[in-house]
Nucleic acid binder design. Structure first.
Ligand SMILES: [Zn+2]
Ligand SMILES: [Zn+2]
Ligand SMILES: [Zn+2]
Ligand SMILES: [Zn+2]
Lengths: 162, 162
DNA sequence: TAGCTATCTGTTATATTATAACATTCCATA
DNA sequence: TATGGAATGTTATAATATAACAGATAGCTA
């Protein structure tokens, strides 16, 4: 899985053209859904767009608040169903330590990932480091666990915030 | 920080004497609190004991249910205050991907850790692997993040469950 | 094209996890 | 034994997530 080409693996330059960033993510999502024979409905598209609106993790109820600005009958299941769909199709990730959601940079297939989170500005970078993943898998096995999935979330300070 | 001597770094032998396991954790906690000049009150002790009751993570409201069996006026703040205290004094950990709590094997000081969780039996082993921690810190830095804390939680199958 | 079926959405209610706020009790120590 | 900070009791509510069922929609097939 190659990374979306418009993003570097580092924290986002504040000046990068994020509209293009979002547009590419949405267009990628559309392709993925077509390949998977699943429907990329308006609600799903809209929720993905809201999530991609920044490179920060967003809470489910903040997505709900945004939806309600344009659709006054939005309720929690609307959001959680879209989130389930997007998670199942590997278009977003859930950040466990924040109960928050973020767009996937390597979207469309299951893949290893590690998240780097700036505690000051909340910006997130997604790593896809095989060396880290393999070392964890190996050490887990040394300790008896046959690993199926790993959550790696690193909190710290990004270059702009130090 | 050395690990509690009665535990191996592997998944628990079903036959290990878990009463001794719990007793040692409680006695260690008492020492830690004395060293830190904080009070190891009955409630805090009782919550820690409930958490240590097994090597599985426990939910806050399951702790509350157990407390209520012996104290009918227990309420959520009772549990969460004890959890905060135990977390602050490094006597337990929170497992982010499960919203659950587990006793710390290397208790009493802040330290690196990685959790290995069997999805079948829910038993957890705590690793304290410096190689993993350092690699993650290094890779994070390569990507611009100065790491302060890392969450590493691995889901898989333990030897008894494969 | 009409009808069928699975999927998606709307809606209401509720479960689960966690904290705020303030009153009361406890306890170390002066 | 007075007193002030810490701990606990109590009530209320915030924040996150799911259950259950009714109604609408889209894509397939007769
Ligand atoms: Zn962007
Ligand atoms: Zn930052
Ligand atoms: Zn034990
Ligand atoms: Zn197991």
């Amino acid at each position: 899985m190659t990374k979306l080409p418009h993003r570097s693996s580092e924290f986002q330059d504040i000046k990068h053209n994020h509209k293009i960033c979002v547009a590419k993510a949405l267009s990628r999502a559309k392709e993925v859904c077509h390949k998977n024979s699943v429907r990329f409905t308006d609600q799903r598209r809209r929720v993905l767009e809201i999530i991609w609106h920044s490179h920060k993790p967003i809470l489910a109820y903040d997505i709900l608040r945004k939806l309600r600005q344009e659709k006054d009958n939005a309720e929690p299941p609307t959001v959680y169903r879209a989130l389930d769909f997007l998670l199942n199709n590997h278009l977003i990730h859930r950040i466990e330590s924040l109960n928050a959601y973020i767009g996937c940079d390597y979207s469309g297939e299951q893949h290893i990932s590690q998240f780097l989170i700036c505690v000051a500005c909340k910006q997130i970078t997604e790593m896809e480091d095989e060396e880290v993943a393999l070392l964890i898998t190996q050490k887990a096995l040394d300790n008896g666990l046959q690993a199926k999935h790993q959550t790696v979330e690193v909190m710290g300070l990004c270059p702009n915030c130090r």
